[in-house]
């Protein structure tokens, strides 16, 4: 019986009609699909249960933000307190520092890594395929695979005031050694430039792919018209990677408030806390170290909502300006 419904349509039938015949919406279609593909539905059960438990239940658990958590009564039994947890956070003296630190750190990261990745990709694209190009790519791509813990450790070792190679170098020029990590004013630069070091090669790969998709005829005709290499980059390559760049920028800006916990936390120490404390690390500290579950949930929720709003907003702007968005 199942085979009856899947008999191939006659050759003359158009693909459009074929597709419409297959897609049967509604309850009847679902029942038929269930009967026909019950093994596939069965296969999906475990992952779907996983999504419910580890993604959707936490979302519903976020109501904790409006409650005063009581371990014995549990999440749903704890008393409602309205916006109190948010109020506490907004009136906390660290609130603006946290928002500022998170925002500046992210914006600085995007501002530095976004153009540098594009520059690397454009430069690689100009060079003939060969050993040189391949080794540059291989080496610049490699740090992406190193763990955050190792990158931070390397940063600390290289910048260490006692043994670090950077201070050795400065000492050679007579500059007294600097405790880079103990000084809050260096924190952002260390964070951002070690990030650039780690991810530029990886990010460039995406642009390189976009560049290889540009029609060579465009370059040929530009060359015939006497365009220089720089002019070809500006008028052929850059417009060619624009859609990709817009999507990457949208994603980056949309995630500005979601900057990762992992690296900031590792680079933190009591001396640089005034610049290195961001929302994510603060949530960890209030929630898990000080066991203020409701307060930490409220801060986390505030962050998630801001982030979602930013993403939707930036996407809408990008779509209006360039016609390319995440869901185009």
């Amino acid at each position: 019986m199942a085979t009856l419904t899947t008999v191939r349509p006659p050759a003359g039938e158009t693909p459009v009609r074929r597709r419409r015949r297959r897609e049967r919406p509604g309850v009847q279609g679902l029942r038929r699909s269930l009967r026909r593909h019950w093994t596939l539905y069965l296969l999906m059960v475990v992952p779907l249960v996983w999504f419910v438990i580890f993604k959707y239940i936490p979302m519903s658990n976020a109501v904790l933000a409006f409650k005063s958590f009581n371990v014995i009564k549990g999440i749903w039994g704890s008393p409602w307190v309205g916006w109190q947890n948010f109020d506490l956070f907004f009136h906390n003296p660290v609130f603006w520092t946290l928002v500022k630190n998170t925002f500046i750190l992210s914006v600085y990261t995007v501002a530095a890594s976004f153009p540098i990745a594009i520059i690397l990709a454009l430069a690689l694209n100009e060079v003939r395929n060969g050993v040189f190009k391949r080794s540059v790519q291989l080496v610049t791509y490699a740090p992406y695979f190193i763990s955050t813990v190792v990158v931070v450790s390397m940063t600390i070792l290289v910048l260490s005031p006692r043994l670090g190679i950077v201070n050795e170098g400065l000492g050679f020029f007579g500059v007294p050694s600097i405790d880079f990590l103990g000084n809050p004013e260096y924190f952002r630069h260390i964070y951002v430039w070690s990030d650039v070091w780690q991810t530029t090669g990886y990010s460039a790969v995406i642009y390189l792919a976009a560049l290889s998709g540009i029609d060579p005829a465009l370059h040929e005709s530009a060359k015939l018209d006497g365009a220089s290499r720089l002019q070809r980059i500006r008028h052929v390559d850059l417009p060619g990677i624009m859609p990709t760049a817009v999507i990457i920028l949208v994603l980056a800006v949309g995630n500005i408030m979601a900057i990762g916990f992992e690296k900031a936390f590792l680079l933190q120490n009591p001396l640089n806390l005034s610049q290195s404390e961001i929302i994510a690390t603060y949530v960890y500290k209030t929630g898990l170290l000080n066991a203020d579950f409701s307060g930490a949930t409220a801060i986390g929720l505030f962050n998630s909502v801001i982030n979602l709003a930013l993403l939707l907003m930036v996407n809408a702007i990008a779509k209006r300006i360039t016609g390319n968005g995440l869901w185009s």
Binding site: K55, I57, P58, N61, N303
Partner: peptide
């Protein structure tokens, strides 16, 4: 499934689960 990319419960709610 895609929605979970946009919005998450956050650290503490996940920890409680």
């Amino acid at each position: 499934i895609l929605f979970t990319m946009l919005f998450t419960g956050g650290l503490i709610p996940t920890y409680l689960v």
